[in-house]
Design a binder for these strands. Sequence first.
DNA 1: ACCTGAACACCGTTCAAGT
DNA 2: ACCTGAACACCGTTCAAGT
Lengths: 205, 205
Amino acid sequence: MIPGRTPDTRERLIRAAWDLLGEGGPGAVTLRGVGARVGVSRTAPYRHFADKDALLRAVAEQAFRALGDRMRTAAREADDTPSVLRVVLLAYIDFASEHTEQYRLMFGEWVIAQKRAEGDAGGPLHTAALSLFELCAGMLAQGQREGVIRQGDPADLALLTWSTVHGLMTFALSGHLEAKERGARTEVERLVGEVVEGLMARRGN
Amino acid sequence: MIPGRTPDTRERLIRAAWDLLGEGGPGAVTLRGVGARVGVSRTAPYRHFADKDALLRAVAEQAFRALGDRMRTAAREADDTPSVLRVVLLAYIDFASEHTEQYRLMFGEWVIAQKRAEGDAGGPLHTAALSLFELCAGMLAQGQREGVIRQGDPADLALLTWSTVHGLMTFALSGHLEAKERGARTEVERLVGEVVEGLMARRGN
DNA sequence: ACCTGAACACCGTTCAAGT
DNA sequence: ACCTGAACACCGTTCAAGT
């Protein structure tokens, strides 16, 4: 009688797609496989989602939510602004490293067409991405008020910072970075430190 | 009798795949379609490539070559170092904007598994990416010697710069950026300017 | 309201056979 | 050396039919 006590089919389909994606990449996510894992027929998902992309969109939304939660939780654990920035960015790359396939779903090639299918602005996918951006911009604006982050449009700083971290993550995941040095994770961590360093206000400026 | 006078089937298959990719995205590239465009059967490509991925790898290699040529040509048109940096980065985003699908092939999700299939290091895909990186690092090192680019490991600077530009491009192409303001191209151009600004040496440092 | 099974159109890939 | 046609296993998706 309590709604949501046992996960309904819709929720279980999303979970199954999430797991299959994480285990075997995009190629491993088939409606047949998702149905089988949940214990329904291969056409059952069509009762809950318009098509395969709609199911994957729900997975991406959940990934955005999980990443946002993780960043906000990390933010609560630090007190001063430069450290909170570093901690949040590290939480970001940790999520991307642990959930590689979900991360690629959020920012990869596939998502562009999906946002258009959602109606460009206003869709949950766009809202979720915007919320992450605003979290980042808000932290930078706070730091500027405290005088520890350098001047400039906080939206520009946030976009540039996010772009750099995303770019680093992309190169790390694609192996373009890995070849240079063993331990891509440590390498990215160090470079994120440099990014934060570059955001700090300079004495007398 | 002159070898390469008329393009052979292999070359025409690559060209057809490049065109289909550009016109309709990854979904439009099918071995059947490629064969049809060239005027051979759908199984003919297997006489020239091990499988579909091998054909796409050849397309990616050509894209890397085209991007490299474009950057080097742009570099020759500018004289002083700060301007050459800006010009080369703009050539980069121009290529990415004009050949969106090919650009995604070079740095998207697909390429990771491919590099592994190539044998991680030493493969043409990895060599091509490394060559672009070294072009960027070389320009920065030259600028440091001239005293116009700030201190730091040129490899780090190159990686951070490239990551930022690639990240900006990703967000622009994915529409995450586009929503904020009309004219994503102008926006990216302005932000690339900020990136170059951040690389300049500061007086007295 | 939710699920099923059969069917359809489309893939990549293999292989025996042709020139 | 290069190409072909038939065939196979696998997709997403539709639809009439069941409870």
